[in-house]
Write a protein that binds this DNA or RNA. Structure first.
Lengths: 331, 331
DNA sequence: ATGAAAGCGCTAACAA
DNA sequence: TTGTTAGCGCTTTCAT
């Protein structure tokens, strides 16, 4: 049996209420008794039971984080941002992978709510009305990171993916490429669709027709990048530039093109997305869109603390700045 | 106010004990009443409160995971292994970063114990007697992953780092390099020391004297790799091969050497460590030591479930197999 | 097969 | 400033 608050109270000759007060730093305790209590806490090695505390106070100081895949370099940096701010505000994180699978996501929301988390951070994937419905079965606040809900009911932190993709494509067009190719993710995920739409918008503004053969939608992996560019370069009509929706994929593109004897950026200009650490870990170094992943997580967590604290929040749809950094994969 | 077990009991005309039984799949319930209860649970949208349950049952079905840095590609894959197995056994993970900082680690152990986790997974960093002491203040089982405690009191899952480093160095020596260089981490971390010792052992077996100028101990980063190799190659006496203690660093080594005009593997052979996804995302592709990171996490979590279940465990110090994969950074 | 009731360890009025 | 006491929502004997 472990030491309880009751043991401490008895040993220190005070009531459990007083012990509770000193543990919770309630100022209404005479310094001398505080000292006495502290000493016996120390002596007995008392460790407050957070579960009991949670039941009584209806606060667990833990938040749930639902993330597509923690082993992805993108999300793991985001997670680090979350965790650092959570620590700062004394919260713990229950972390779960969803693989952007809707059933899993819904399931996880439920589990976390059962565990009485004080708030939920939801990342990636789509936010459907069903998600919103699940969220609403509890009063725990929810913040979305790197995704958003179209009804605008749930606060979120993002960059403007559409504009970013537009700018990258535009940059390539301005460099003289008639139609830069696009290699991105499946557009059933909203953010991927945003990037695709940004790309299209830039094309529409400049060229007349759009060559569908310059557009590839696949998974966000290194191998998909290789496969994608090899397909593009095996066509009659070959692109001279390509906008790739993730760095990992973009590195695949670079290597795939190099394997075929193409020189980057001379024969093919490449722009990636995210500016993960990978971007500088490839030769030529990758021009890409800087998306502040760590900050995305940090800001989302900070926002969540405000909601959990019932503070006033003015800005519910936070858009963080992005920018393009040109390195050696573009001329 | 949310729905409690009491509400369900009242609405279904049974006692809370019966509701509890159906929620927990206790077989001692007449099928018809089970059905009735299930129906009213559905109707009311009852969601069991895991905190209350945890207080009453003294089980939280959550385990704490202390990890050096979730944004590191190495640990994030490990974490994914942990999480997948945890999910399989219905556990949730409280994840925290320690940065291998002893104070933080001790702190986190305490916090997790306060939260009444059913077990702890501890990764990276050193395990000191103080750690062991902290662990012992609770009956929650602990499993170490990618680290071990020298007293052998705490179960752990690892590969044999010393042997792996020995083999890599030996391979290089057998290829005709008199003294391959070593670029690794600070040896105040036990695992880094193991790798260093494995390297030394291989040298001692073959060559007479050891050139200390061929040995660099720095942080495990891409930039440290670049810096390290540039230093080595600026010396009078230059290495023709190098064993690098992490892939990220090794890629830095490759690029650093390439920047100086060296050809890999012709002028310099490189072997990395870990076989992270990065190893195939560089040209030339990286020869490296395959360490099954995902499995390390998965096996550690599996082992922990056995302890939490109070099952008999025969093998307490699990050593997973490793092997060297030769790719294009070696001849 | 079901119910009654005693906790689990703590917080938070309320009193004193 | 301190103590008393009633929960928080559930599990788990122990009866029945």
């Amino acid at each position: 049996m472990s030491i309880t608050i009751y043991d401490v109270a008895r040993e220190a000759n005070v009531s459990m209420a007083t012990v509770s007060r000193v543990v919770n730093n309630n100022p209404n305790v005479k310094p001398s008794t505080r000292k006495k209590v502290l000493k016996t806490i120390e002596r007995l090695g008392y460790r407050p039971n957070a579960v009991a505390r949670g039941l009584a106070s209806k606060k667990t100081t833990t938040v749930g984080a639902i993330i597509p895949d923690i082993s992805s370099i993108f999300f793991s940096e985001l997670a680090r941002g979350i965790e650092d701010i959570a620590t700062m505000y004394k919260y713990n994180i229950i972390l779960s992978n969803s693989d952007q699978n809707k059933e899993k996501e819904l399931q996880l929301i439920n589990t976390m709510l059962e565990k009485q988390v004080d708030g939920i951070l939801f990342m990636g994937g789509n936010v459907t009305p069903e998600h919103v419905q699940h969220f609403s079965t509890s009063s725990a606040p929810v913040v979305l990171a790197a995704t958003y809900d179209e009804t605008g009911k749930i606060p979120s932190v993002n960059i403007d993916y559409k504009v970013a993709a537009y700018e990258a494509t535009k940059l390539l067009i301005d460099k003289g490429h008639k139609q830069p190719a696009f290699i991105g993710g499946q557009v059933d995920i909203k953010l991927n669709l945003d990037k695709y739409e940004g790309y299209l918008k830039a094309l529409q503004e400049s060229s007349a027709e759009i060559n569908e053969n310059f557009i590839i939608k696949d998974s966000y992996s290194y191998n998909a990048g290789i496969k994608g560019i090899k397909k593009l370069l095996s066509q009659e009509d070959k692109p001279t530039a390509v906008f790739v929706a993730s760095d990992e994929m973009a590195i695949g593109v670079i290597h795939g093109a190099q394997d075929l004897g193409y020189k980057i950026p001379e024969d093919l200009e490449v722009i990636g997305f995210n500016n993960t650490r990978l971007a500088t870990m490839v030769r030529p170094t990758l021009s890409t869109i800087i998306q502040p992943m760590y900050d995305l997580g940090a800001v989302a967590m900070r926002l969540l603390t405000k909601y959990m604290n019932k503070e006033e929040v003015t800005e519910t749809e936070v858009i963080l700045p992005h920018r393009i950094i040109e390195r050696d994969s573009t001329k």
